[in-house]
C-alpha cells in the first residue's frame, strides 16, 4: 500500500481546506480502506472526519428530514421518525450490508461507494479504473446493468440512495466556494471518459447533509439478494406515493442495481399516477418500467426480477 498521512479533524470546517485531488476523506472506512488495500485508490492524505461531531445528526422538522453525512446506516434504520415517515429510507438502510458494516458505514460514504464489479475490484485495469475496456461487458456480468448508460456496465451498488431519489432528497455539498444544494438524482451520474466515478463530487468537496423533503404518505424499499442478508442487491426498487382515496399520487419509482445509477421509471410512474393500483396495473407498471431494459449475456433474470419487484412494491404501498 502506498504510504499516506493520516490527519484527524474535529469539525467540518477544518476539512475543506485539506481536500484536493491527492487526499480523501475517511469516515466509516468500509469502502475506502478496501479500495486502498487493493491499490484502486492511493491517496497521499487521508482526512479522518469521523470525529467531526457536527456532521452526525438526524433532525426531523416541518421542513422534512435533515441527516448529517456522518450518520451511520444503523442510526438511520433505528430512528423512529425515519421509520415512520420515510420508510423506504429506513428499509434501504436496514437491508444494506451486515450489522457490523452498518455500525461503521455512513450515509455520506454510502453515496460515494464505488462499483462492486468483480473486474473493477479485481486484477483488471478496466475502463472504470482508467483503462480501455469494460471487461464485464463481454465477460461475466450476472450482477451487471440492464440499462446501458456508459462504456461501463457496473451497477451503482448502494441501497439508501435509491430510496433518497424516490423521496426527492437533496445533498448539501460544501467546497472552497461555499455550499451548493444538489438533488441526489443529479448527483449520481454515469461515469464519463473524464470522470471515472459513479458520482459527481469534486475532489475538494464534501457532502455535509442530506435533506429529505417532508415525506409522502407511503414508501417502500424492496431488495432482492442471493442469500438472506449481507449481499449487494440483484435488483431493488424504491417507491414513494401519496395514497388518497385509494388512489396513488405523486408516485416515484426508482430502480436500483440495474445501471450505473439508480433509475427513475418515469413511464411507469405516469401509468399509475392518480390511479387505483390493481394487481393488474401493478404488473403492467413493472413491464413498463423495464420496457427499455436490455439484458447482457448472464443477467436475463434481472428483467423478470425487477418487473416483479416494481409490481410487488406498488401492491405493498397500496396495502399500506
Amino acid at each position: 500500500m502506498q504510504p499516506f498521512i493520516h490527519i484527524d479533524v474535529a469539525n467540518s470546517e477544518e476539512v475543506i481546506p485539506l481536500l484536493d485531488a491527492r487526499s480523501r476523506p475517511l469516515a466509516g472506512g468500509t469502502d475506502m480502506l478496501p479500495l486502498m488495500k487493493e491499490g484502486i485508490v492511493a491517496p497521499e492524505r487521508l482526512i479522518n472526519i469521523k470525529r467531526a461531531g457536527d456532521l452526525r445528526y438526524i433532525r426531523a422538522d416541518e421542513d422534512g428530514l435533515h441527516i448529517g453525512a456522518l450518520t451511520t446506516l444503523d442510526e438511520l434504520d433505528r430512528h423512529p421518525d425515519v421509520r415512520r415517515d420515510y420508510t423506504t429510507l429506513a428499509q434501504a438502510a436496514a437491508e444494506a450490508a451486515s450489522p457490523q458494516l452498518r455500525n461503521m458505514a455512513t450515509l455520506g460514504g454510502n453515496l460515494l461507494q464505488q462499483a462492486r464489479c468483480w473486474y473493477y475490484r479485481g486484477d483488471f485495469h478496466c475502463w472504470l479504473k482508467g483503462g480501455e475496456l469494460c471487461h464485464a461487458r463481454d465477460g461475466r456480468n450476472e450482477y451487471h446493468a440492464i440499462f446501458d448508460q456508459s462504456p461501463c456496465v457496473a451497477v451503482y451498488p448502494s441501497d439508501p440512495p435509491a430510496a433518497l431519489m424516490a423521496l426527492e432528497a437533496n445533498l448539501r455539498i460544501v467546497g472552497p466556494q461555499g455550499a451548493r444544494l444538489v438533488p441526489v438524482a443529479e448527483f449520481l451520474q454515469p461515469p464519463s471518459a473524464e470522470r471515472r466515478t459513479l458520482h459527481t463530487l469534486a475532489p475538494n468537496e464534501l457532502i455535509v447533509e442530506v435533506h429529505v423533503p417532508k415525506g409522502p404518505s407511503g414508501s417502500v424499499y424492496l431488495k432482492a439478494m442471493d442469500r438472506a442478508t449481507w449481499a449487494y442487491a440483484l435488483a431493488s426498487v424504491a417507491v414513494a406515493a401519496n395514497i388518497r382515496d385509494g388512489r396513488a399520487h405523486n408516485v416515484r419509482i426508482v430502480l436500483g442495481a440495474v445501471s450505473n445509477r439508480p433509475i427513475r421509471a418515469l413511464a411507469a410512474e405516469e401509468l399509475v399516477e392518480g390511479q387505483l393500483i390493481t394487481p393488474e396495473l401493478a404488473r403492467r407498471a413493472g413491464e413498463t418500467a423495464l420496457a427499455a431494459a436490455r439484458a447482457l449475456e448472464h443477467n436475463h433474470y434481472k428483467l423478470p426480477l425487477t418487473r416483479n419487484l416494481v409490481a410487488q412494491a406498488l401492491r405493498d404501498i397500496m396495502a399500506g
Binding site: 451486515s98 468483480w118 461475466r140 450476472e142 442471493d226
Partner: peptide, 25 residues
C-alpha cells in the same frame, strides 16, 4: 466459484462474491 472462461480468471476468490450461507440463511 465464478470463472471468466475466456480469460481463465476466477472472479470471486473472496467472501464478498463467493457466497457462503450466513447465520440468517
Amino acid at each position: 466459484r465464478i470463472v471468466d472462461t475466456e480469460r481463465g480468471a476466477v472472479l470471486n476468490p473472496n467472501l464478498e462474491f463467493y457466497k457462503l450461507p450466513t447465520i440468517a440463511d
